[in-house]
Simulated scan of single mutants.
Amino acid sequence: MTEDQPLSSLSDGSLVERSADGDTAAFGVLIRRYGPLMRAYAARILGYGDGEADDAVQEASLQAWQRIDRVEDPDRVRSWLFRIAANKALDRLRRRHPHLDLEAVPEVGDERPVDEVVITRMQVDELARIAQNLPDAQRAVWVMREVGGASYAEIAEETGMSTTAVRGALARARRTVLEQMEGWR
């Protein structure tokens, strides 16, 4: 890194290596880079509105800092951070145990005709309602796979379920979502 090259321009792998050496500024760049996504991911698992997602991300960030030297593949730190955030969110979900409240994704400078935007928003609202009504285990597995892109093995590790149980819960969740979204095709 040259003097005029900011930390924010470094790759994830370089930031992880520097963080593992105790560079708090490099770790701060990682958290600024992925913190908002971690929060959105945790919020999808926990539901919005009460700050629990922020708390889960804060706990995840602290745990990540304590374990940054254990990252096996520094270039895949994003997945590693998401797993920690998911674990913290799932811990909170287990303690709380009500249904999640998934809300629509906010609009971002959409240039589509208004009717398309309204229809899409209604579809997202319906999907959120359906996901909210899934049993907790199915909802967590579905969100981790469909929203977070986690593998079956990662989901099994994070939820404490077997890979077979994850596949079954995901299949049931997908079937429910497909059946209930049928009218939107």
Rank of each mutant, 00 (worst) to 15 (best):
S61G: 14
G13D: 11
Q5W: 05
I119R: 15
N87L: 10
L127D: 03
Q66H: 10
N133F: 01
R172S: 13
G28M: 02
D23C: 01
G148V: 06
V29L: 00
E157C: 12
A173I: 05
R32P: 00
L7F: 13
L170M: 11
E52T: 10
E116N: 04
R95P: 01
E111N: 07
A171K: 14
R145C: 07
G47I: 10
L178G: 07
N133E: 13
R83T: 09
V141C: 09
R70Y: 04
V124D: 12
S162G: 14
E3R: 14
V114R: 09
A42D: 05
N87Q: 14
R18F: 08
E59C: 07
T176N: 09
R139L: 08
E103V: 13
M1F: 11
V71Q: 01
L37D: 07
E157W: 07
R129T: 06
E72G: 10
L134M: 10
V57T: 02
I45S: 07
R95N: 09
A165K: 05
R78V: 02
A89L: 03
A86Y: 02
V124L: 14
I84H: 00
R185T: 08
V105S: 08
P36F: 15
Y48W: 14
R167E: 13
R174A: 13
V141W: 04
G49E: 08
D23I: 01
I45K: 09
D115E: 15
E182W: 15
A43G: 08
Q180G: 04
G28T: 04
V117L: 07
E107V: 08
A89V: 03
A128E: 04
L30R: 00
A140F: 08
T159Q: 07
V118H: 08
Q123P: 01
Y34V: 01
N133W: 06
M181F: 12
D75H: 09
A20F: 03
A25Q: 08
D125S: 07
G160A: 11
E17Y: 04
R33L: 01
L90P: 01
A53E: 10
S79W: 14
Q58G: 06
R121V: 02
D54W: 06
G35Q: 08
A86R: 02
P36E: 09
R39F: 03
P74K: 02
N87T: 12
V166R: 07
A140G: 04
R185F: 12
Q132S: 14
S14L: 09
A20M: 03
L10W: 13
E116A: 08
V147R: 15
D73Q: 10
P36N: 04
D12H: 05
R67Q: 13
V143W: 07
R96Q: 06
M144V: 07
V177T: 11
H97R: 06
E126N: 10
A169G: 03
M181E: 06
A53S: 12
M1P: 11
A56T: 05
L46D: 05
M122F: 04
L102W: 13
A43L: 14
E107P: 03
R44L: 03
I119N: 07
